[in-house]
Design a protein around this nucleic acid. Structure first.
Length: 389
DNA sequence: TTAGCCCTGGGGTGATGACC
DNA sequence: GGTCATCACCCCAGGGCTAA
């Protein structure tokens, strides 16, 4: 095989492999067996190793990993990666709706999306190819984890359709499905290694591994939920999501457009009941104003958009015993009381300590050593004592 | 074992603007 | 001028992860 033949075969094999990858990991509709897929991959790797100068950065063979990153490069986000304001109550969600209503002088609609419990990621594409993947970091700058992200098979390295903007960024959430997480822990158990405690923190840790080959073994997954581009002229967020799906991104099939806040409440209620049936963890619902023109009108606060909010599902709570209270001195000399508790399992973590914030909180709860207390996760991972019995 | 990071929630304080 | 809501900013906290 000469070089020009090799180039042609590499192109054909790459397209075939990306197509089967998409069918398997995005559409969940595989058309060939794993054995056949592996054969195609072996063939590609064999030709690329004979003609190393034909190896492209976004070849499907790069998904198996291999590169080692000693220190992740810090990258400034082109568009700041803000977090969302959030709420646990319908009243506050109604207040949010009132604020939106007040800020807009015409009818508006919302788009409701599931809030995946994972790690936020920004993916930059140039001419249809993935060029960079950056973590949220502090919202202004994050770590370049491109090599690790390339091993995630539901993320397209090369886009399918052709009508994408020349340059753009998509954002989404990287996470472990329940199945992938169970497989990893089973392997760890067989190897005598300590088990991972929960999918979210494991995904976060996996993304920062130095050896991308190890990341590839973990079968992380990714859903995308927004796009930032100067050259993409569509006014509706819902239409943008549809276009992203056409280009090959994995978009949630449970996203729903709601014409009123009552429809939003129904969507929340439905997924609060049904979330345990999903093959991955969610911790709430994200509500966004659909029109980009409206989003622009509403604008941003310093840390979050005024046109979107996250409704978080009620936290689990468990009962345990208060052993003692200790005091921690912070960097500035501030003293914070901390409850030492009998260890309990809560939402995938082991809780042994909980912040009591200040003396007033201790007084308000009328806390004493040996009391039985209720602990709940305040949002994501902060244990909080909510009552005494 | 420890440091540093991930991500997020919440307390505290002060500034600002709307409204009465 | 007083009150209230909203916002910005800083600081501190948690458990779990990887890397050294």
């Amino acid at each position: 095989m000469n070089k020009s033949e090799a180039k042609k075969v590499i192109k054909e094999l790459s397209e075939k492999l990306e197509e089967h990858n998409y069918l398997y990991y995005v559409e969940s509709d595989p058309k060939i067996s794993d054995f056949e897929y592996d054969k195609l991959m072996e063939e590609l790797i064999a030709i690329e190793s004979k003609f190393p100068d034909l190896l492209s950065d976004n070849s499907p063979s790069q998904r198996v990993g291999g590169s080692v990153t000693k220190k992740f490069k810090t990258v400034k986000h082109v568009y700041p990666m803000l977090s969302l304001g959030n709420t646990y109550s319908q009243e506050e969600l109604s207040d949010f709706d009132q604020r939106v209503q007040k800020g807009l002088d015409e009818n508006y609609a919302y788009v409701c999306e599931l809030k995946f419990d994972g790690v936020a990621i920004g993916l930059r594409y140039k001419n249809g190819e993935l060029v960079q993947a950056v973590t949220r970091g502090d919202g202004v700058k994050g770590d370049d984890v491109t090599n690790n992200v390339k091993t995630i098979k539901s993320i397209p390295l090369v886009l399918r359709a052709k009508n994408f903007p020349g340059e753009f960024e998509v954002r989404g959430e990287i996470f472990f499905s329940h199945k992938a997480f169970a497989i990893i822990n089973k392997e760890r158990e067989e190897n005598g290694e300590p088990l991972f405690a929960n999918p979210r923190n494991s995904a976060s840790g996996s993304l920062k591994m130095q050896e991308s080959k190890e990341v590839a073994k973990r079968n992380l997954d990714c859903y995308l939920y927004s796009i930032y581009s100067e050259g993409f002229k569509t006014d509706l967020h819902s239409e943008r999501l549809k276009a992203m799906g056409d280009w090959g991104f994995k978009i949630s099939e449970h996203t729903k457009k709601c014409k009123s806040i009552d429809e939003v409440f129904k969507y929340i209620e439905k997924w609060d009941k049904q979330r345990s049936k999903l093959p991955y963890d969610i911790d709430g619902v994200v509500i966004k104003v659909d029109s980009l023109k409206h989003q622009e009108q509403l604008g941003y606060t310093s840390k979050s958009p005024r046109w979107a909010i996250a409704y978080k599902f009620k936290a689990e709570s468990v009962s345990t015993k208060l052993i003692s209270v200790s005091y921690q001195v912070g960097r500035t000399g501030a003293i914070t009381p901390v409850a030492n508790l009998e260890a309990v399992q809560l939402a995938g973590t082991t809780v042994k300590r909980a912040s009591l914030h200040n003396a007033d909180q201790i007084e308000m709860l009328d806390l004493h050593e040996d009391d039985h207390v209720y602990v709940e996760k305040g949002g994501e991972i902060i244990p909080k004592i909510t009552g005494v019995n």
